[in-house]
Amino acid sequence: MARHTLIQLCGYLGFLIMLLKEDKYPLIPMLVIDHISKPFDHNNSKAIGKVLTSAFNTIGKENFQVFMFDDETYETLDLKPDYSENLVTESKTGFNPFYFSSEKQVDIKE
């Protein structure tokens, strides 16, 4: 499964690079990834960082935004992000922008 995930990631990034080089379409180069490390074991999870680092070098770090939600730390994936925030604490288990607790029900009326 790890090989399959890497092939998908490389395919997406290759297609994105191709579209950016053609410069025919208005694009926002970004990637949102959820639990990409799941099919990898500890020994081969660094491949994710190698592929993304190569994409950053090709596209330019200032031109490419990646949002990654994962259980692993960025060090385990061999990434060196400009910004990282751990969304898991004692009081929360992650990020859900559409969740409203029953204590703070928001009445949305237009």
Rank of each mutant, 00 (worst) to 15 (best):
M1H: 05
A2N: 02
R3I: 13
R3N: 08
R3A: 12
T5F: 08
T5P: 06
I7G: 02
I7Y: 07
L9K: 00
L9V: 04
L9N: 00
Y12T: 05
Y12Q: 05
L13M: 05
G14Q: 05
I17K: 02
M18Q: 07
L19I: 07
L19T: 04
L20H: 01
L20V: 08
K21W: 03
K21I: 08
E22C: 07
D23C: 08
K24C: 11
P26Y: 08
I28K: 06
P29S: 07
P29T: 09
P29D: 04
L31V: 11
V32C: 15
I33N: 00
H35L: 14
I36S: 00
I36C: 00
S37R: 00
K38D: 09
D41V: 04
D41A: 05
H42F: 13
H42L: 10
N43F: 13
N43G: 08
K46P: 05
A47T: 05
G49W: 04
G49F: 07
G49S: 10
G49A: 12
G49N: 03
L52C: 01
L52Y: 00
T53F: 06
T53L: 03
A55W: 00
N57W: 03
N57E: 12
T58I: 15
T58S: 09
T58P: 01
I59F: 02
I59L: 02
I59E: 00
G60Q: 02
K61T: 12
K61G: 07
E62N: 08
E62G: 05
N63L: 09
N63V: 10
F64L: 06
F64R: 01
F64D: 00
F64M: 08
V66A: 04
V66G: 03
V66I: 14
F67C: 08
F67R: 00
M68E: 00
M68I: 12
F69E: 03
D70F: 14
D71W: 11
E72W: 08
E72F: 06
T73S: 11
T73H: 13
T73C: 14
T76V: 15
L77T: 01
D78E: 09
D78H: 12
D78V: 04
L79H: 01
K80V: 13
K80F: 10
S84M: 10
E85L: 13
E85V: 15
N86V: 11
L87Q: 04
V88W: 04
T89H: 10
T89F: 12
T89R: 06
T89A: 14
T89L: 12
E90R: 09
S91N: 12
K92P: 02
T93Q: 10
G94M: 07
F95Y: 14
N96W: 10
N96P: 04
P97A: 10
P97R: 04
F98A: 14
Y99C: 07
F100W: 12
F100K: 03
S102M: 10
Q105K: 08
Q105E: 13
V106F: 11
V106C: 08
V106D: 01
V106S: 12
E110C: 15
